[in-house]
Computed example of a mutant assay.
Amino acid sequence: MNHRQFCLEDLARLVQGEFFGQSDLQLEGLASLDLAQARHLAFVNADKYLDQAQASKAGALIVTASLKNQLSNHHNFIVVANPYLAFAILTHVFEKKCEQKGIEDTAQIHPSAIIAQSAYIGHYVVIGEKCIVGEQTIIQSHVKIDHDVEIGQQCFIDSHVTLTGETKIGNRVRIHANTVIGGEGFGFAPYQGKWHRIAQLGSVKIGHDVRIGSNCSIDRGALDDTILEDGVIIDNLVQIAHNVKIGTHTALAAKCGIAGSTIIGKNCVLAGGVGVVGHINIADNVTITGMSMVTKSISEAGSYSSGTPMLESLPWKRAAIRFKQLADVPLTQLLKRIDHMQTQIESLESTFKRK
Protein backbone atom coordinates (compact mmCIF):
# COMPACT_ATOMS: atom_id res chain seq x y z
CA MET A 1 0.00 0.00 0.00
CA ASN A 2 1.20 3.52 -0.79
CA HIS A 3 1.31 5.62 2.41
CA ARG A 4 1.97 8.98 0.79
CA GLN A 5 -0.55 11.65 1.70
CA PHE A 6 -2.04 14.38 -0.48
CA CYS A 7 -4.15 17.35 0.50
CA LEU A 8 -7.66 17.79 -0.86
CA GLU A 9 -6.80 20.95 -2.80
CA ASP A 10 -3.89 19.28 -4.63
CA LEU A 11 -5.96 16.25 -5.57
CA ALA A 12 -8.71 18.49 -6.94
CA ARG A 13 -6.16 20.30 -9.07
CA LEU A 14 -4.88 17.02 -10.53
CA VAL A 15 -8.35 16.19 -11.90
CA GLN A 16 -9.19 19.79 -12.88
CA GLY A 17 -11.95 19.82 -10.30
CA GLU A 18 -13.11 22.26 -7.62
CA PHE A 19 -12.62 21.45 -3.95
CA PHE A 20 -15.06 22.31 -1.15
CA GLY A 21 -14.31 22.04 2.54
CA GLN A 22 -10.96 21.69 4.29
CA SER A 23 -8.32 22.48 1.66
CA ASP A 24 -5.44 20.96 3.66
CA LEU A 25 -7.28 17.76 4.56
CA GLN A 26 -4.70 14.97 4.24
CA LEU A 27 -5.86 11.89 2.33
CA GLU A 28 -3.83 8.71 2.03
CA GLY A 29 -5.81 6.54 -0.35
CA LEU A 30 -8.93 5.67 -2.30
CA ALA A 31 -11.61 3.35 -0.97
CA SER A 32 -15.14 2.17 -1.64
CA LEU A 33 -18.04 4.03 -0.04
CA ASP A 34 -18.69 1.13 2.33
CA LEU A 35 -15.11 0.67 3.57
CA ALA A 36 -13.73 4.22 3.41
CA GLN A 37 -12.45 5.86 6.58
CA ALA A 38 -11.58 9.44 7.53
CA ARG A 39 -8.30 9.47 5.54
CA HIS A 40 -9.86 8.00 2.41
CA LEU A 41 -11.32 9.50 -0.75
CA ALA A 42 -14.33 7.81 -2.37
CA PHE A 43 -16.40 8.62 -5.45
CA VAL A 44 -20.14 8.83 -6.10
CA ASN A 45 -21.11 8.28 -9.70
CA ALA A 46 -24.93 8.25 -9.71
CA ASP A 47 -28.05 8.98 -7.67
CA LYS A 48 -28.48 5.28 -6.86
CA TYR A 49 -25.40 5.48 -4.59
CA LEU A 50 -26.63 8.45 -2.55
CA ASP A 51 -27.73 6.37 0.45
CA GLN A 52 -24.34 4.63 0.55
CA ALA A 53 -22.61 7.96 0.24
CA GLN A 54 -24.62 9.52 3.09
CA ALA A 55 -23.65 6.62 5.36
CA SER A 56 -20.01 6.53 4.25
CA LYS A 57 -17.21 7.49 6.64
CA ALA A 58 -15.00 8.77 3.80
CA GLY A 59 -13.03 11.92 4.54
CA ALA A 60 -13.93 13.37 1.14
CA LEU A 61 -16.07 12.48 -1.85
CA ILE A 62 -15.62 12.93 -5.60
CA VAL A 63 -19.01 14.03 -6.94
CA THR A 64 -20.82 16.08 -9.55
CA ALA A 65 -22.26 19.45 -8.55
CA SER A 66 -25.81 18.06 -8.44
CA LEU A 67 -24.80 15.13 -6.24
CA LYS A 68 -22.92 17.42 -3.84
CA ASN A 69 -26.11 19.33 -3.06
CA GLN A 70 -27.80 16.10 -1.96
CA LEU A 71 -25.11 14.98 0.49
CA SER A 72 -25.81 16.88 3.69
CA ASN A 73 -23.75 14.51 5.86
CA HIS A 74 -20.47 15.46 4.17
CA HIS A 75 -18.45 18.67 3.93
CA ASN A 76 -15.31 17.81 1.92
CA PHE A 77 -15.73 17.35 -1.82
CA ILE A 78 -13.97 17.34 -5.16
CA VAL A 79 -16.55 18.43 -7.74
CA VAL A 80 -16.00 17.28 -11.34
CA ALA A 81 -18.09 16.55 -14.40
CA ASN A 82 -17.18 12.84 -14.42
CA PRO A 83 -16.42 11.32 -10.98
CA TYR A 84 -15.49 7.92 -12.39
CA LEU A 85 -12.88 9.45 -14.71
CA ALA A 86 -11.48 11.52 -11.83
CA PHE A 87 -11.27 8.36 -9.73
CA ALA A 88 -9.41 6.58 -12.56
CA ILE A 89 -6.88 9.42 -12.77
CA LEU A 90 -6.29 9.46 -9.02
CA THR A 91 -5.66 5.71 -8.85
CA HIS A 92 -2.32 6.47 -10.52
CA VAL A 93 -1.49 8.97 -7.79
CA PHE A 94 -1.96 6.41 -5.03
CA GLU A 95 -0.61 3.42 -6.96
CA LYS A 96 2.55 1.84 -5.56
CA LYS A 97 5.04 2.02 -8.42
CA CYS A 98 8.22 0.11 -9.06
CA GLU A 99 10.98 2.73 -9.04
CA GLN A 100 13.94 0.35 -9.32
CA LYS A 101 16.57 0.76 -12.00
CA GLY A 102 19.42 -1.40 -13.19
CA ILE A 103 19.95 -5.08 -13.87
CA GLU A 104 19.76 -7.85 -11.27
CA ASP A 105 22.82 -10.11 -11.17
CA THR A 106 20.80 -13.25 -11.98
CA ALA A 107 19.58 -11.86 -15.33
CA GLN A 108 21.11 -13.24 -18.52
CA ILE A 109 21.43 -10.64 -21.26
CA HIS A 110 23.12 -11.15 -24.62
CA PRO A 111 25.93 -8.65 -25.22
CA SER A 112 24.26 -7.35 -28.39
CA ALA A 113 21.06 -6.33 -26.53
CA ILE A 114 20.53 -2.63 -25.85
CA ILE A 115 19.12 -1.89 -22.39
CA ALA A 116 18.31 1.71 -21.41
CA GLN A 117 20.08 2.93 -18.28
CA SER A 118 16.77 3.85 -16.59
CA ALA A 119 15.22 0.43 -17.24
CA TYR A 120 14.88 -2.30 -14.62
CA ILE A 121 15.65 -5.95 -15.43
CA GLY A 122 14.51 -8.35 -12.71
CA HIS A 123 15.88 -11.63 -11.41
CA TYR A 124 16.27 -14.55 -13.85
CA VAL A 125 15.21 -12.54 -16.88
CA VAL A 126 16.64 -13.89 -20.16
CA ILE A 127 17.15 -11.45 -23.03
CA GLY A 128 18.34 -12.64 -26.45
CA GLU A 129 20.37 -11.17 -29.29
CA LYS A 130 19.72 -7.67 -30.66
CA CYS A 131 16.85 -6.93 -28.29
CA ILE A 132 15.99 -3.37 -27.26
CA VAL A 133 14.50 -2.30 -23.93
CA GLY A 134 13.51 1.38 -23.70
CA GLU A 135 13.84 4.02 -21.01
CA GLN A 136 11.99 3.50 -17.70
CA THR A 137 10.69 0.10 -18.76
CA ILE A 138 10.21 -2.50 -16.01
CA ILE A 139 10.91 -6.16 -16.76
CA GLN A 140 9.91 -8.33 -13.81
CA SER A 141 11.45 -11.66 -12.81
CA HIS A 142 11.54 -14.78 -15.02
CA VAL A 143 10.60 -12.97 -18.23
CA LYS A 144 11.94 -14.50 -21.46
CA ILE A 145 12.65 -12.12 -24.34
CA ASP A 146 13.80 -13.86 -27.52
CA HIS A 147 16.07 -12.51 -30.24
CA ASP A 148 15.17 -9.27 -32.06
CA VAL A 149 12.31 -8.28 -29.74
CA GLU A 150 11.93 -4.53 -29.23
CA ILE A 151 10.22 -2.94 -26.22
CA GLY A 152 9.52 0.80 -26.03
CA GLN A 153 9.64 3.29 -23.18
CA GLN A 154 7.77 3.19 -19.85
CA CYS A 155 6.49 -0.33 -20.40
CA PHE A 156 5.69 -2.86 -17.69
CA ILE A 157 6.31 -6.55 -18.40
CA ASP A 158 5.13 -8.75 -15.54
CA SER A 159 6.70 -12.01 -14.36
CA HIS A 160 6.79 -15.13 -16.54
CA VAL A 161 5.85 -13.32 -19.74
CA THR A 162 7.35 -14.68 -22.97
CA LEU A 163 8.04 -12.32 -25.86
CA THR A 164 9.16 -14.05 -29.03
CA GLY A 165 8.71 -13.99 -32.79
CA GLU A 166 10.58 -10.66 -33.22
CA THR A 167 7.70 -8.85 -31.54
CA LYS A 168 7.78 -5.04 -31.59
CA ILE A 169 6.14 -3.22 -28.67
CA GLY A 170 5.40 0.52 -28.45
CA ASN A 171 5.55 2.86 -25.45
CA ARG A 172 3.60 2.62 -22.18
CA VAL A 173 2.49 -0.96 -22.83
CA ARG A 174 1.53 -3.20 -19.90
CA ILE A 175 1.69 -6.98 -20.25
CA HIS A 176 0.66 -9.09 -17.27
CA ALA A 177 1.88 -12.39 -15.92
CA ASN A 178 2.15 -15.60 -17.96
CA THR A 179 1.15 -14.06 -21.27
CA VAL A 180 2.85 -15.26 -24.47
CA ILE A 181 3.24 -12.86 -27.38
CA GLY A 182 4.68 -13.90 -30.73
CA GLY A 183 4.23 -17.64 -30.29
CA GLU A 184 3.66 -19.90 -33.25
CA GLY A 185 0.29 -19.47 -34.91
CA PHE A 186 -2.04 -22.43 -35.45
CA GLY A 187 -1.20 -23.05 -39.10
CA PHE A 188 -1.42 -26.51 -40.71
CA ALA A 189 -2.09 -27.79 -44.24
CA PRO A 190 -4.21 -30.98 -44.45
CA TYR A 191 -2.98 -33.59 -46.92
CA GLN A 192 -3.67 -37.33 -47.14
CA GLY A 193 -5.14 -37.50 -43.66
CA LYS A 194 -2.29 -35.67 -41.97
CA TRP A 195 -1.67 -32.12 -40.76
CA HIS A 196 1.45 -30.49 -42.19
CA ARG A 197 2.84 -27.66 -40.07
CA ILE A 198 3.21 -24.24 -41.70
CA ALA A 199 6.18 -22.31 -40.34
CA GLN A 200 5.03 -18.91 -39.06
CA LEU A 201 7.20 -16.19 -40.62
CA GLY A 202 5.40 -13.01 -39.56
CA SER A 203 5.65 -11.09 -36.31
CA VAL A 204 3.52 -9.16 -33.80
CA LYS A 205 3.36 -5.37 -33.73
CA ILE A 206 1.84 -3.66 -30.68
CA GLY A 207 1.17 0.09 -30.61
CA HIS A 208 1.38 2.60 -27.75
CA ASP A 209 -0.71 2.54 -24.55
CA VAL A 210 -1.83 -1.05 -25.00
CA ARG A 211 -2.79 -3.19 -21.99
CA ILE A 212 -2.72 -7.00 -22.15
CA GLY A 213 -3.93 -9.10 -19.23
CA SER A 214 -2.64 -12.34 -17.71
CA ASN A 215 -2.56 -15.71 -19.47
CA CYS A 216 -3.21 -14.35 -22.94
CA SER A 217 -1.82 -15.72 -26.21
CA ILE A 218 -1.16 -13.45 -29.17
CA ASP A 219 0.25 -15.41 -32.10
CA ARG A 220 2.73 -14.15 -34.67
CA GLY A 221 1.54 -13.85 -38.24
CA ALA A 222 1.98 -16.59 -40.80
CA LEU A 223 3.42 -14.17 -43.40
CA ASP A 224 2.17 -10.68 -42.51
CA ASP A 225 2.09 -9.41 -38.92
CA THR A 226 -0.49 -9.68 -36.17
CA ILE A 227 -1.25 -6.05 -35.21
CA LEU A 228 -2.68 -4.37 -32.12
CA GLU A 229 -3.03 -0.65 -32.69
CA ASP A 230 -2.72 2.14 -30.09
CA GLY A 231 -4.91 2.05 -27.00
CA VAL A 232 -6.17 -1.53 -27.34
CA ILE A 233 -7.05 -3.10 -23.97
CA ILE A 234 -7.26 -6.85 -23.46
CA ASP A 235 -8.51 -8.72 -20.41
CA ASN A 236 -7.17 -12.05 -19.08
CA LEU A 237 -7.42 -15.38 -20.93
CA VAL A 238 -7.81 -13.98 -24.43
CA GLN A 239 -6.60 -15.79 -27.57
CA ILE A 240 -5.67 -13.76 -30.65
CA ALA A 241 -4.66 -15.87 -33.63
CA HIS A 242 -2.20 -15.17 -36.40
CA ASN A 243 -2.66 -12.19 -38.72
CA VAL A 244 -5.46 -10.64 -36.68
CA LYS A 245 -5.60 -6.85 -36.75
CA ILE A 246 -7.31 -4.92 -33.93
CA GLY A 247 -8.04 -1.21 -34.35
CA THR A 248 -7.31 1.62 -31.92
CA HIS A 249 -9.04 1.73 -28.52
CA THR A 250 -10.87 -1.55 -28.97
CA ALA A 251 -11.52 -3.57 -25.79
CA LEU A 252 -11.67 -7.37 -25.45
CA ALA A 253 -13.01 -8.85 -22.21
CA ALA A 254 -11.95 -12.17 -20.69
CA LYS A 255 -12.06 -15.43 -22.65
CA CYS A 256 -12.57 -13.90 -26.07
CA GLY A 257 -11.18 -15.95 -28.93
CA ILE A 258 -10.34 -14.33 -32.27
CA ALA A 259 -9.56 -16.69 -35.15
CA GLY A 260 -6.92 -15.99 -37.77
CA SER A 261 -6.87 -13.13 -40.29
CA THR A 262 -9.84 -11.32 -38.78
CA ILE A 263 -9.83 -7.52 -38.82
CA ILE A 264 -11.57 -5.73 -35.94
CA GLY A 265 -12.17 -1.99 -36.25
CA LYS A 266 -11.63 0.96 -33.93
CA ASN A 267 -13.51 1.60 -30.67
CA CYS A 268 -15.12 -1.82 -30.60
CA VAL A 269 -16.11 -3.70 -27.43
CA LEU A 270 -16.17 -7.49 -27.28
CA ALA A 271 -17.69 -8.66 -24.00
CA GLY A 272 -16.68 -11.81 -22.14
CA GLY A 273 -16.53 -15.12 -23.95
CA VAL A 274 -17.10 -13.76 -27.46
CA GLY A 275 -15.87 -16.00 -30.28
CA VAL A 276 -15.01 -14.66 -33.73
CA VAL A 277 -14.41 -16.86 -36.77
CA GLY A 278 -11.49 -16.23 -39.08
CA HIS A 279 -11.15 -14.16 -42.24
CA ILE A 280 -13.95 -11.67 -41.51
CA ASN A 281 -14.08 -7.91 -40.95
CA ILE A 282 -15.80 -6.07 -38.09
CA ALA A 283 -16.54 -2.37 -38.59
CA ASP A 284 -15.61 0.46 -36.23
CA ASN A 285 -17.77 1.17 -33.14
CA VAL A 286 -19.26 -2.31 -32.86
CA THR A 287 -20.29 -3.79 -29.50
CA ILE A 288 -20.72 -7.56 -29.23
CA THR A 289 -22.46 -8.81 -26.09
CA GLY A 290 -21.17 -11.64 -23.91
CA MET A 291 -20.90 -15.24 -25.17
CA SER A 292 -21.84 -14.26 -28.71
CA MET A 293 -20.46 -16.10 -31.73
CA VAL A 294 -19.58 -13.90 -34.70
CA THR A 295 -19.77 -16.01 -37.87
CA LYS A 296 -19.79 -13.36 -40.58
CA SER A 297 -18.52 -9.85 -41.26
CA ILE A 298 -20.20 -6.86 -39.60
CA SER A 299 -20.26 -3.80 -41.84
CA GLU A 300 -22.22 -1.30 -39.70
CA ALA A 301 -21.67 0.13 -36.22
CA GLY A 302 -24.04 -1.01 -33.50
CA SER A 303 -24.66 -3.65 -30.85
CA TYR A 304 -24.87 -7.33 -31.83
CA SER A 305 -25.83 -10.46 -29.88
CA SER A 306 -26.25 -14.18 -30.39
CA GLY A 307 -26.91 -17.21 -28.24
CA THR A 308 -29.75 -17.86 -25.80
CA PRO A 309 -30.23 -15.61 -22.76
CA MET A 310 -30.57 -17.24 -19.35
CA LEU A 311 -34.01 -18.51 -18.32
CA GLU A 312 -35.23 -20.66 -15.46
CA SER A 313 -34.53 -24.30 -16.27
CA LEU A 314 -38.08 -25.42 -17.15
CA PRO A 315 -38.88 -22.51 -19.56
CA TRP A 316 -35.45 -22.98 -21.14
CA LYS A 317 -36.13 -26.69 -21.79
CA ARG A 318 -39.50 -25.84 -23.33
CA ALA A 319 -37.92 -23.20 -25.54
CA ALA A 320 -35.21 -25.65 -26.62
CA ILE A 321 -37.89 -28.17 -27.65
CA ARG A 322 -39.71 -25.50 -29.65
CA PHE A 323 -36.48 -24.49 -31.39
CA LYS A 324 -35.93 -28.12 -32.36
CA GLN A 325 -39.48 -28.44 -33.61
CA LEU A 326 -39.01 -25.36 -35.77
CA ALA A 327 -35.78 -26.77 -37.16
CA ASP A 328 -37.58 -30.01 -38.09
CA VAL A 329 -40.24 -28.17 -40.14
CA PRO A 330 -39.16 -27.39 -43.72
CA LEU A 331 -38.91 -23.68 -44.42
CA THR A 332 -41.39 -23.90 -47.27
CA GLN A 333 -44.06 -25.26 -44.91
CA LEU A 334 -43.45 -22.43 -42.45
CA LEU A 335 -43.77 -19.85 -45.21
CA LYS A 336 -47.03 -21.40 -46.41
CA ARG A 337 -48.44 -21.32 -42.88
CA ILE A 338 -47.45 -17.68 -42.47
CA ASP A 339 -49.05 -16.80 -45.83
CA HIS A 340 -52.26 -18.62 -44.81
CA MET A 341 -52.37 -16.78 -41.47
CA GLN A 342 -51.84 -13.46 -43.24
CA THR A 343 -54.74 -14.22 -45.62
CA GLN A 344 -57.03 -15.04 -42.69
CA ILE A 345 -56.08 -11.82 -40.88
CA GLU A 346 -56.79 -9.74 -44.00
CA SER A 347 -60.16 -11.48 -44.44
CA LEU A 348 -61.17 -10.73 -40.83
CA GLU A 349 -60.11 -7.10 -41.19
CA SER A 350 -62.20 -6.79 -44.35
CA THR A 351 -65.26 -8.31 -42.60
CA PHE A 352 -64.98 -5.89 -39.64
CA LYS A 353 -64.72 -2.89 -42.01
CA ARG A 354 -67.93 -3.90 -43.84
CA LYS A 355 -69.80 -4.09 -40.55
Score class of each variant (00 low, 15 high):
L8D: 04
L27M: 07
G29E: 13
D34L: 13
A42Q: 02
Q54N: 07
S56Y: 02
A60M: 02
I62T: 01
A65I: 01
N69C: 01
I78P: 03
I78F: 03
N82Y: 11
A86D: 11
T91A: 10
G102V: 05
I103S: 03
Q117N: 05
I121K: 13
H123N: 10
Y124S: 14
Y124A: 07
I127M: 07
C131N: 02
Q136D: 15
K144P: 06
I151H: 05
F156K: 12
T164R: 03
R174M: 07
N178R: 11
V180I: 10
L201V: 07
N215L: 10
S217D: 07
S217F: 08
S217N: 08
L223A: 04
L237R: 03
A241Y: 00
I246E: 00
I246A: 00
T250E: 01
A254E: 00
K255G: 00
K255D: 00
S261T: 07
K266L: 08
G273P: 02
V277W: 03
N281E: 13
T289L: 08
V294D: 01
S299V: 15
A301Q: 12
P315V: 06
L331V: 09
Q342N: 14
E346N: 15
S347T: 12
S347N: 14
K353D: 12
K355M: 15
